[in-house]
Each structure stands twice: as C-alpha cells, then as structure tokens.
Amino acid sequence: MSTIPSSLVEVQSKDIEVIMDVMEDMNPVHVDEELAHSLGLRGCVNQGPANLGYVINMLIDWAGSPETIRHLNVRFHSISCPGDRLEARGVVTELFFEGESCLARCSVELVRLLGPVGEGTELILRGTAIVEISDDLEIIVRHSGVG
C-alpha cells in the first residue's frame, strides 16, 4: 500500500458557526452543549460535511487538484467536537485505468487524536475515494508496490 500524506486540523466553535451560516443549518446540537449532553453526546457536534472536508483537503493536497476527485463514500462512526485534534489519513489500495486516466482507489479515514500523536485515536469517519492521479504520482504509488 502507498500512504497518502496525512493532515491535521483542530476543530473550532467559530468554524462550526460559519458552516451553520453557509448551510442555513439551524440544528441546535451544533452550538448547544447542554442539549448535546442531554442527547448522550460528548459535546457540540461539528458538521459531518466539515469532517468530510478535512479528508478532501488531504486528497487535494496529495493529488494536486480538486478536479481529480471522482468518487467518495464515507460512513460516520463518531462525532467531532470543538477542541478536538483530528488527523485525516489515507492509503492507496489499488490502481486502475479508465480510458487513459490512471485512478487510485484509496481507503481514507478521519480520527480524533486522544493525546499526543501515538497515544490512541477514535475513528470519526472511514470510507473510500477514487482519485485521478498524474503520471508522476502513478510512478511513486507503483514503486510502493500497489498495482
């Protein structure tokens, strides 16, 4: 497998409010901590699309362009909350061709770091992505043993 460079992000309350504004999302679970706790959640809920966005950012940084992303499928396993430090990770599991385009099937995930890096994680989302890659990236991925 070929590893995609990971990326780190810290969730902030102000960012949640911005996404609420953009999405016209009035769900109080994003800002009302008391309500979140009453629902059995550990804190205000960062929006799922934001979590998805962090993973997409990692893929763009790796593949070089937003237009390289062809498909994404993710399942959310847990929530992220303000103050959480998250790491987006990915590996290429397969290369295949569609016409002349080389496509990488990637396994991706977003985890919450429970302490300094290496002290444990909680899975936030996991899924697969299909990304078109350049000739140079194809060579690097093939060199790592992915066929």
Binding site: D15, V18, P49, L52, G53, P66, L72
Partner: peptide
C-alpha cells in the same frame, strides 16, 4: 470563501468549487 476558512483550506487557489460542495 467562508467555507474554505471553516474547513481550514484558506490556501485553496482553484477556479472550481471545493469538492465538499458536492455535498453542500
């Protein structure tokens, strides 16, 4: 622009919308 800031992608310099808009 607001979305890019909120998902920590301020350096995004592409003409097309960020792919998170496929959901949004």
């Amino acid at each position: 622009k607001k979305t890019l800031g909120a998902i920590h992608q301020e350096g995004y310099a592409f003409e097309v919308a960020h792919p998170v808009y496929a959901h949004l």
